[in-house]
Amino acid sequence: MKRRLSLRGRGVQLLSQREHSRQELRRKLLQHLRKLHSEAESGLPEPIEPTEPIDADQQVDDVLTWLQDKGYFSEQRFVESRVHVREGRYGNLRIRQELAQHGVALDADTTARLKDSELARAHEVWLRKFGAPAAEAAGRAKQMRFLSSRGFSPEVIRRVVKGGAEVEGDDG
Rank of each mutant, 00 (worst) to 15 (best):
G88F: 03
D116R: 13
H84T: 12
N92Y: 10
E75Y: 06
F73T: 06
E80W: 04
A105D: 03
E87M: 11
S81D: 15
Y72P: 10
E80Y: 11
H102T: 05
G88M: 01
E98K: 13
A112P: 06
G88L: 00
D69T: 09
L114E: 08
R82S: 10
K115T: 14
A112C: 07
D107F: 01
T65S: 15
E87F: 05
Y72I: 03
W66H: 12
W66M: 13
Q101T: 07
Q97R: 09
E75V: 14
H102Y: 10
T65V: 13
T111E: 14
L93V: 04
Q97G: 11
A112V: 07
V83T: 11
A112D: 12
V79H: 00
E98A: 10
G91Q: 06
L114W: 05
R94N: 02
Y72S: 06
G71L: 09
L99R: 10
L106N: 01
K70N: 07
W66E: 14
R89L: 08
I95W: 11
E80Q: 09
E80T: 10
E80N: 10
V79T: 11
D107Y: 01
A100T: 11
E87P: 07
T65H: 15
G88Q: 03
H102C: 07
S74M: 08
D69P: 01
W66C: 04
V79I: 13
Y72C: 06
T110G: 04
D107V: 07
G91Y: 01
R113I: 11
E98N: 12
A105K: 10
F78N: 05
D116H: 12
R89I: 02
R96M: 09
T65Q: 15
G91S: 03
A105G: 00
V85K: 13
D116G: 06
K115N: 07
E87Y: 05
G91F: 06
L106T: 09
R77Q: 09
R89H: 14
D116F: 04
E98V: 14
A112Y: 02
K70C: 03
F78S: 04
V104G: 13
D107Q: 06
T111W: 02
E80S: 12
R89Q: 11
